[in-house]
């Protein structure tokens, strides 16, 4: 039967807390880097230069199409075979997971942001340009805030998917939440309690994100009715 005591000590014990922390750090790092790169890619996607547009299009096509598990394994097992650089000590499971997930996440976020940038009308940029604002000023002060308002729900959605996708890194033995849960099960054979405890952690993290989403949406929706 369900051992309530074990469940509680699993929830409040160190192993899962450490795993959840790693999951969080990994997700946040991937999301931050991806946002920066995708902002660049997303703004290029609407540019006049064909070569740039096509490269970004090709990138998105590849990394949105390939399964995450495959990319993860490719990075972890394939890259060291490609070059000795990836056989050195710094190429840890954490870094490999970070790299693989970022490659994928950039593709998804680029699509989201591309659409959001396009949703900000040409008139906004022209109105700003006519006032003498420069291109990058227009981008940061006018386009970005309006695009983010459109994109935030989808971005948070992506963040939530990402948070859960980090569990795939268990196949390259990254000691994130799911890996540590399975370690615990391997020694105790108590499935219900440990899976239950892991679920609590995931739900907690996702709930925090949902609250954050409501806040930021309210902040960005100022002036819109």
């Amino acid at each position: 039967m369900f051992d309530y005591h074990l469940f509680l000590s699993a929830v409040f014990g160190w192993p899962l807390a450490k795993g959840a922390l790693l999951t969080m750090v990994l997700s946040i790092s991937v999301m931050t880097c991806s946002l920066i790169v995708a902002t660049l890619f997303g703004s290029v996607a609407g540019s006049q230069r064909k070569a740039l547009r096509w490269s970004v299009g090709g990138y998105v096509w590849l990394f949105r199409g390939a399964p995450a598990l495959l990319i993860l394994l490719f990075v972890w097992n394939g890259l060291p075979q490609l070059s000795p650089v990836f056989r050195q000590a710094w190429f840890t499971p954490f870094f490999a997971a970070f790299l693989a997930l970022t490659l994928i996440e950039v593709a998804y976020l680029t699509e989201i942001l591309r659409g959001a940038f396009a949703a900000v009308g040409k008139g906004q940029r022209e109105g700003a340009a006519a006032l003498g604002l420069h291109r990058w000023q227009i981008f940061i002060l006018i386009t970005m805030p309006q695009a983010l308002r459109v994109a935030v729900p989808a971005l948070i959605n992506e963040f939530i998917s990402l948070l859960k996708a980090t569990s795939l890194a268990t196949v390259i033995s990254l000691k994130e939440l799911m890996t540590l849960t399975q370690f615990a099960i391997a020694t105790s054979f108590r499935f219900l309690e440990w899976y239950g405890a892991a679920l609590v952690y995931y739900m907690l993290m996702v709930s925090v994100l949902t609250v954050f989403q409501t806040r930021i949406e309210r902040l960005l929706s100022k002036g819109h009715r």
């Binding site: 906004q124 022209e126 109105g127 700003a128 006519a130 308002r149 002036g223």
Partner: peptide, 15 residues
């Protein structure tokens, strides 16, 4: 040179 547009082009996210 200042310009005024048919559709105002005010920035909706700013007061």
């Amino acid at each position: 040179v200042g310009m005024v547009f048919q559709h105002f082009n005010l920035f909706p996210h700013l007061t």
